[in-house]
Amino acid sequence: MSLDRRNFLKLTGGAAVLGAAGTAEARPNKEPSPDAVGMLYDATICIGCKACMAGCKEANDMPIDSNLAEPGQPPIWDTPIDISDKTLNIIKVYKQGSAEVKDREFDGFSFIKRHCMHCVDAVCISVCPVNAMRKNPVTGVVTYHPEVCIGCRYCAFACPYNVPAYEFEKPLGQIRKCQFCDHRLKQGQLPGCVEHCPTGASLFGTRKQILEEARRRLSMRPGEEYEYPMQTVDSPHKHVATVKQYQPYIYGEKEGGGTQVMMLAAVPYDKLGLPNLPEKSAASRSETVQHTVYKGFLAPSLLLLFLLYITNKTVRREQHEEERKQLEEE
């Protein structure tokens, strides 16, 4: 080995400094705010009418997202294929085999509504370098602030649901995402999708109410009749429908540290394109690694001091030697 013993010790010493400071505690998942708002999407009572998509476009003043128009032709119809910079909310369909019966995994179909899940411990907030993604401390709504956003798109890169979407077609584009109709909530109105939903498949309430409601539905036996509330959990307007065979857990209760938008469905959630996420949030995992290395900036500071000490010594000595040589030559 080319390193002599002394230099080797120096290097390992530096590594030890790094390691010693690296005992920061792992950061746990964040907890939801007690007044956090929530939304329940129940795929078994969704009729796929896309009224929520129309309502969303209207409430957020979003443009037509046409994937049918010929290039160069004006868009003729709103036909989004995914969440995008023009579509914040989309109803997608799962189809298998002959797709005859709704809410059946095989030879059946199911709808699924996709938009921002408003994670309790959102990774987009954790990764944004300039706090352009923020969580409302009371409602827990994840909002976007274009006035500070630098457009690095790390939020879109990291989001497990591929929600934030940058406007690639615009020279001065911004990120677009569902913000739980924050502007409407402030005026005491419901989110656009919830207001337009004719069956209560998109249901608004606090996160707690939503969880209770979802648990109630899970406790029903398939085939029983249940009074499904419309628009809000505590709404007097209800409609009766038979309970389907639900998947036995609530998607979003624990996924990635929990979300404020939760899902119920009869078809396995991964079939509906909802990723299978660990209970530990990606944000906490990333921040644990980052904080282990950078806690209080102690380890980096020590490393820098150590480097300064060594370079000072080596560079100085070399410079002196050179001067001496020059003197000798003269």
């Binding site: 989004p80 294929i81 997608k92 369909v93 799962y94 709808f111 509906l272 394109g273």
Partner: peptide
């Protein structure tokens, strides 16, 4: 719900 082609599939 027809025509089903107008719904985006899960893995479009």
């Amino acid at each position: 719900v027809t025509p089903p082609a107008t719904y985006a599939s899960i893995y479009e």
